[in-house]
Amino acid sequence: MNIIETHELTKYYVRPGLKKRQTMGIEQVSFAVRRGEIFGFLGPNGAGKTTTMRILLDLIRPTGGTASVLGLDAQKDTVEIRRHVGYIPGEILFYEGMTAGDLLRYYEQLMGAPATRKGELVSLFDIPLDRPVKTFSKGMKQKIAIVQAFMHDPELVIMDEPSSGLDPLVQQRFYDFLLRERASGKTIFLSTHILGEAQRVCDRVAIIRKGRIAAIEDVAELRAKSGKRITVTFEGPVDEADIMTPEVRDVAPLEDGYVLHTGSRVTKTLRRIAALPVADISIEETSLEDIFMHYYDGDGDV
């Protein structure tokens, strides 16, 4: 049994108004998440990641297609499903006038079962239980959201852009935490627009753009497609041939330099560049957009 399974899931949003207008949320989205894996939905903002997750939790209803979670129908059996699922939404807002401890206790009551891991997680994420929630920073609220999602030790945790708002150190601790959870048998379905995050924690990713899935791949394949983007400007005219190495997959000229896309290895290329009169250089991770440009055609179809 797949932990999550969707078939041709489609959602059109109806815009209110005199003329009935529809906007497409997602279209023909089909994928499956296996038990014990960390599966990522990778795509830019507005791609349809949140829409898909909200359908799985019956917060919104699909226009077409089917979705099942833990073998149960996502719409018909939603209350039963939610007994075994934790959720971290994209935007975290809590009730005013409560302390962190009150909040977690309320959620524990709503689950109708003891939150067996509450103590462990509260220490792990350093949650000050007596402080009122409204005094918390975005990062702290994110941590409370993580605790409430995991404290009942659910089989599946769905998280929408879970590391947004976390500072880099906490982010790393969070990724380590996710990997440990997976090791203990949990299934995690997360969404992100950050390629590096998907590569760090996911086993497989579905690449989604403009409401459609472009590809479903093992992270290893994704790594093979990504690499570095080097933007270099020179003090004098430099021939393209002077910087080309087998590492370079793509080169685009600038007025006074080049933008190079390489694989993950850059040694030869950097040596070549270093020998030349460099005015300025910046090296970044390949962006999601770059990958789309090179490996999937413009509008997200494979």
Binding site: D58, L59, R82, R83, V85, P89, L93, L110, M111
Partner: peptide
Amino acid sequence: ERKTADILLSYPVS
């Protein structure tokens, strides 16, 4: 509106 309904309805309450 305040989106507190999102987490509320992620719990097993109809």
